[in-house]
Amino acid sequence: MNDKDNEEGMNPRTASAHVAANTRKILAFVDGGLTAADTSVIEEHLRSCRECQAFYRTARQLTAALEREIKRPVLSPSFTARLQERIEADRSLQSQTAYFQQKQRMQMEFEQNSARLRKQLFCLPNLLDLVSYSFATLIACYLLVTGFGWLIRTVGQSSPAEQQHALLIFSGIIVIAGIAVALGLATKGQARPSLKEI
């Protein structure tokens, strides 16, 4: 900024370049965007430079028009209520969706597990296992009942020494039957997986 030039008067070309050089500062000055030091410099310059004064007036006019015309828009009063409604609707939709998804998942898991269980129970090796176990149990029951009947009969007909002998034999049969059942159960436990494993 050369105040001496302005006092003496500039040709239009020089004046144009001079104002162009100060445009940014003048526009910022109008918006109050200059530092205190720059503000005092530009104020001092504007007092003496007619070209810059003219641009300053234009800049002020533009700024005043912008301040006047750019009005703050206002949100409608129902804004927050509408937003809350939308969020609530989404929440209930989400919870419904979550409920149906969980129900569907449980149904699917149940069907899958039932199918696996049926397959496990009725496949050939497990079926044979089941038959042999049942057969062993039947034999054990038969021995038990027969032995008990024989014991009743013998006790009713014989002497005390013979009674002791019959009791001993019957105890032996019980022990053998128990061992057979235990063995059958042990074999069964190894062959078939537990329900938890399924």
Binding site: V19, A20, A59
Partner: peptide, 9 residues
């Protein structure tokens, strides 16, 4: 733009 500043107003 800067060059034409003086005539804009």
């Amino acid at each position: 733009l800067e060059e034409s500043a003086s005539v804009q107003h």
